[in-house]
Simulated scan of single mutants.
Amino acid sequence: MSDPAASIVSRASDRHRDAIADAYNQAFGFQPARSHAYIEQVGIGNFRIFSVGEQLAAVMAVIETGHWLGGKPVPAINIAHVAINPIWRGAGLAGRFLEQVCAEAAASNIGLATLFASTRPVYRRAGFALAGLEMIYEAETSVLPRVRGGRFVRLEGEPAIAAIEALYRQRCIDDAGLLQRSPAHWASLMAGNTAVFVSAVAAAPGYLVLDTSDVECLVVRDWAAINGAAAAHLLTFLGTFSSVYPRVRWHGSPQDALVFALPDKGWRLMHQEEWLARILDPVAVLQARGYSADGVLGIDLDAAGTDIPLALEIRDGQGMCTTGRTGLPTIRIALGDFGTLVTGHRSASFLARAGVLTGDPAAIRLCETLFAGPSPWVGEHF
């Protein structure tokens, strides 16, 4: 076995395709065809290789993106499908790999790293905090409205993406946590047997991306309803599939518009999982995200025993952040827990009751107001 000290992290190239496919077979049981299809969707240049000597010891996908917070996209990386070679498991490679990838992102002025964790302790030790939700709902198509003649247009290829991107962006502005989708995200979303339907009713703007490959369940790959009329309009269109599909399934938010618009019972929550975030550059993140209120707040971050004092001033929803001690109302929180506050996944008062955040009552109330907004979620698993 090679010395792990003689390791290097590099961007993958075409010569690594078979090695990555083998790593995913060893780690996740992926068959070669599935691995190569995933590599093609993501793009070989979006993989990072951890090599020990001449051996591929670990691999992960690193996709540049953003998470919409407060109506603005915060530059981020999604870390996905982290695979460790079986002979290197337990050697601490995952932590070292993450550190180098996060350092690379921070050097490129990216302030946030996010992922889904199969084993949370590893990522919590690496500074990741619970930051938002993935939720999957399911409903019986028999409970959906059965209004015929819904006005939708079916689109394909690039025109389909062009038509729905603007609607998706509007949804991101109104919501929280959603991804600033990269070409890799769009390629994954549109792969396979999908069909895009866009509402033709001006007063009900929205769309559906449907996967019709499973006759037992109609899968909504993606959707947007810009208002309540659009949510009802989407449901009436989904109801036209009731003679073929007994169920329909979709990713949704904690305050889900389709659930709210359903005319009756018959829906259920099928899956819920939290995604994690690590703050790579707190100043960059605080200045990139948007805010629903103005104010001035001091934030003391504890970074493994080293204090990072910040002053956050918000005017017209735009944050300006500087370092240094202030006489402002101040809250204190560990840098490793800061992600859950920044995304709005947990409020300042909740974190104070949990013993994670401290500060005088006025500072906590102000912090609560500044970071208020919709509960963060994502519409895809990365």
Rank of each mutant, 00 (worst) to 15 (best):
F241W: 13
A204W: 08
T141D: 04
A162L: 06
L301Q: 06
L167Q: 08
F237E: 11
L112K: 03
G192D: 15
S188K: 10
S242N: 07
S35F: 08
V342R: 01
G379Q: 04
M135V: 12
F350G: 02
I110Y: 00
L178P: 00
G29T: 10
V209A: 05
L115Q: 07
H16A: 11
R146K: 08
D222P: 03
M135A: 08
G192Y: 11
F350N: 07
G149K: 03
A229C: 03
E368W: 10
F241D: 04
D300L: 11
A195D: 10
E165C: 03
L351M: 15
A139I: 12
M190G: 08
I136C: 07
V153R: 06
E156M: 02
L178K: 00
I49D: 01
P329V: 13
R148L: 11
I39H: 02
Q170E: 12
L238I: 05
A131M: 03
I308K: 03
H81M: 12
V356P: 07
L155K: 04
S35R: 04
S349V: 14
F50V: 06
G355E: 14
T322G: 05
I308N: 03
G149H: 06
V296L: 12
P32D: 10
F30R: 05
V52G: 00
L98W: 09
L276Y: 10
E54H: 04
R325V: 15
F371K: 05
P159G: 04
D302S: 09
A261L: 09
E104Y: 02
E156Y: 05
L238Q: 00
E140K: 07
R325L: 14
G157A: 11
Y24F: 12
P73T: 02
F382V: 04
A348R: 04
L312F: 11
E380I: 01
I39K: 01
H81I: 14
V209C: 07
A6M: 05
D307Y: 02
W68V: 01
A117R: 07
A131S: 13
M270F: 10
H381E: 13
L112P: 07
I164F: 05
A91F: 01
A105G: 06
A200C: 06
A204M: 07
N109F: 11
F237W: 05
Q318Y: 12
V9I: 15
G70Q: 03
I161T: 09
Q170Y: 03
V82A: 10
V52Y: 01
E313H: 10
L133S: 08
Q318K: 13
F382D: 00
S349A: 14
W250E: 01
G327S: 14
R125Q: 13
A76K: 00
V285I: 15
S243C: 06
P75M: 11
L189V: 14
R48F: 04
A284L: 14
T323K: 11
L366M: 14
A27E: 09
V42L: 06
H16M: 07
A57C: 07
V59H: 02
Y168H: 08
F47V: 06
A19I: 01
